[in-house]
Design a protein around this nucleic acid. Sequence first.
RNA 1: GGCGCGUUCGUCUAGUGGCUUAGGACGCCGCCCUCUCAAGGCGGAGACCACCGGUUCGAAUCCGGUACGCGCUACCA
Length: 485
Amino acid sequence: MISENPRVRFAPSPTGYLHVGGLRTALYNYLFAKRNNGAFILRIEDTDRTRLVEGAVKNLITTLKWAGLDFDEGPGKDGGFGPYVQSERLALYKRYADELVQQKKAYYCFCTSDRIKQLRDEQQKTGLQSKYDKHCLHLTENEIRDTLKNNEPYVIRLNVQPNELINIEDIIRGEVTFNSNVVDDQILLKSDGYPTYHLANVVDDHLMKITHVIRGEEWLSSTPKHILLYNYFGWEIPKFAHLPLLLNPDKSKLSKRQGDVAVEDYRAKGYLKDALVNFVAMLGWSAGDDREFYYLDELCSSFSLERVNKSGAVFNIEKLQAMNFAHLQKKTDGELLNLLKEEVAVSSFNDHLLSDEKLLLIIQSMKERINFVKEIILNASYFFIAPQTYDQDAVKKRWTAESAGLLQKFAETIRGVENPSKEDFENALHQVAEIAGVKNGAIIHPLRLAVSGVSGGPGLYDIIFILGKEETLGRINIALEKIII
RNA sequence: GGCGCGUUCGUCUAGUGGCUUAGGACGCCGCCCUCUCAAGGCGGAGACCACCGGUUCGAAUCCGGUACGCGCUACCA
């Protein structure tokens, strides 16, 4: 079954950010490695120079690390199989491509892109499959030598034999069969000297002793090319597992056009890494029971490729958000304190220093009312600064002719209390209400409005206790001046 | 067009021939709780298991076909 120490790799191309689909691919590779005592390798596939983005590799590594997916081998962490960046392995690909040419399993091609385009147009017009016509396969050795000597640009193509059945044993999908007639004479080495994905990934997977290729379903169709390559080189074929795609709400392949796809975007929005990882793990995998809440280490011990689904999964943000809430509730107050301090530091309240003790009280009162830590600042700014405005709808609904008088009475009552506790505030309010002959709500609602500016939020006594007596008195005064009905 | 893959509530899924009047989660609706907003508790609507045919005493589960969706079809990965 699973070899002693499997080696798997996540092989993104550095195009700028980590796609959430990529995160899931990386995660499944990581989980598989951890579950089976194997190695998780990061390899950078930067063979397309036109799509290179500055700083992308660094960003990729940072984001992977943020998610908790530490690699065992990769850029900056050699395990004896480096380098792990394909652009640093060019000589290797050239050598293996040449080897194939020697054996007539690949050949030089000098066709111009114009000719290829023309060929393709014609084939399309006649309803044929677009495929290279092996035109250059029939060049004589002399012709090839002369053209090469003239420094004509060339590519090296795979020489696919017609009418062979190519079988793929896929761990997730079972046996998949292709006829070699539908496999194009794929370009292996581009005219700029860089390999295409197909050559590079086969050479590297072999050299890096990759045992299991776990990648997205979009690669299934080109797997026959890879099988052919392994066979031509006489190399052992790794096990394949093609993961179902992550989908947009309209079921097309998850793309930028329909929302955020970068892990960095979700991170910036305040999603917890635990939640994102948990959510993405459940998109296409389940342990076979009803459990949905997992931490990364728990996923490590229960994951198996055999239980990965075959069909694509819609990336449902609402569920992600619910997952984030669930993970948030499980965090200790201490963990939340650290997260809150980070948010405060980058907010407009960064010079508004509240004690840890006070922040902790704020966290406890707000925890179950938020989906993101930053919402404490966004939705409960009144803990940091007195309300600048008062919600007009709430004023209309809660502020009556008697409100001002009641708040004044309440203020008078608490003014004399030394270091009032939450209960002291509550008792004071009850007392005022009783004397005035009104319901508690007649004071509670306007008071909440006066100190917070809004109608929702934590229990009133929690709010004013956190604010403290002086601040509460001050805010009542301001409100009495500002709220006019 | 060709090739490949897929198809269980709106979404993520459980289900591997009888335990299923198809279970859970998110979302939605209602009730309870309640100083508000949440959270929580309880309940509800929501899937003729894409369709048709076959195998079988019995099928969401096995087989075949059809439809639909998606992916690939680049000197992109």
